[in-house]
Design a protein around this nucleic acid. Structure first.
Lengths: 234, 234
DNA sequence: AAAATTAATGTACAAGATACGTTTATTACA
DNA sequence: TGTAATAAACGTATCTTGTACATTAATTTT
């Protein structure tokens, strides 16, 4: 639900339209969710997705981008509509529908100070507390969407830094699907997609031997975005 | 956009929420779309999807069901949210977002008189005329959704009568994917899903020999709905 | 120089997708 | 009554893709 409710004189005969962002990041092998504490009544202080009312002169998609930028400083982020939460009684007190939109961000890119200022926090997905209204449902729905979508679009890649190793990519998919993947088959499959360019650098953070860094071949990556592929895993 | 606009005193500082139904049927080998002529200003007389404002005390999903019933007499129909159309300028004159919802109906079940009364018509998908606002986009989006979804959920089946033949089912998938399918492979695949019960009746409408009628094994069909399957076709 | 650690690689088998032509049941009509 | 016409029903061989699985390689630390 929206953050600036107190900016509004709430009318009972009015339909409010809000948007809530389900913001995912990936760090240290875990999927994380960015949430904050509501600073407005009702339910002040509850954990909440980051959202806002949609302004009268603003596209619904723009509203979500505005909020995301406000809190994280990020622009040009992967963001997509999830669905509308439109139950008549979802919000006590006044009628408000919310369009859920999920975002995938590279967790090292965001503006830490800005996030701090807004009292936002990253939570491991397994440890997300109770959120206001139907926000826990939104998170659940968004996760299902990502799981399904990762099978035919390379969206998982949005969560990684520009340079990354194949074991990192595998960890990400393991986090998304919440299961172990065979590393030989994973590597084979991911390389067969022809979207990775091997660099001459190694990342030695996780091993003595070090793992080669890769980046995306943006042209082929684009094609894959358009046409989809099959990435079911065992 | 909504039908009952003249019931409202349009306020410029208000956000309106509507829902539009993209109603698909299947007949004589063709996918069809149900549309009607707007009876209200502005754009009176234009072809339009069937829609309505969402009432203050009504779930968004309920609103779509209400409209569908009003026009076709049908209830308990497969219907699902497509997405929100929320561009600030999508509707000239006042701010209105619309939640598109698509429905798949058995084309012989609807109430023909009711449809007549409302001035609604079925159009072959290839012959759908220009619709108001962004409604043509909604149709295009809904079709993409169905195409994708038919690959992992048995939604196509929602469009057939209770008893149907395998050649009919194949025609439906050919219409959805807009391509010819090999009949031997199709039959093999569809039977392997274990959701069809062969009846002791034949439909001789299309051939001298006649084709066996089938119906769904609802229990297995339900499972398939839940867990999905793979129905990519060559 | 030995131990420890994660990265990188290949192969055999199973399952599923694809391509493709002939026979069968029935009706209409000569 | 039998012959022609029509769409339905069926099976197989091949190719492709997914799956299961164990060893060697590169590097750092002690």
């Amino acid at each position: 639900m929206a953050a600036e409710i107190e900016d509004y004189y709430v009318q009972q005969d009015k339909m409010y339209v809000a948007t809530d962002c389900i913001i995912f990041g990936f760090d240290e092998g875990n999927l994380k969710l960015l949430i904050f504490r509501r600073r407005v009544k009702p339910l002040l202080g509850s954990w909440s997705l980051i959202g806002s009312f949609v302004k009268l002169n603003e596209d619904v998609g723009e509203a979500a981008k505005r909020v995301l930028k406000e809190i994280t400083g990020l622009e040009n982020v992967f963001m997509e509509e999830l669905r509308t939460y439109g139950a008549a009684e979802r919000d006590p007190g006044f009628r408000c529908i919310s369009i859920g939109q999920y975002a995938l961000i590279r967790i090292n890119d965001y503006d830490k100070e800005l996030v701090e200022i807004h009292g936002a926090h990253w939570y491991d997905l397994e440890e997300v507390p109770d959120l206001v209204l139907d926000h826990n449902t939104m998170v659940k729905d968004a996760l299902s969407r990502i799981r399904r979508k990762a099978r035919y679009k390379p969206i998982g890649f949005e969560l990684l830094p520009e340079k990354f190793t194949i074991p990192q990519l595998q960890q990400l998919y393991e986090a998304i699907y919440n299961k172990k993947i065979d590393s030989r088959n994973f590597r084979k499959k991911v390389l067969s997609l022809n979207v990775l360019t091997k660099l001459d650098e190694k990342d030695k953070y996780n091993s003595r031997r070090g793992a080669y860094l890769y980046k995306f071949d943006h042209k082929n990556y684009q094609k894959l975005q358009e046409f989809g592929f099959n990435f079911e895993i065992s």
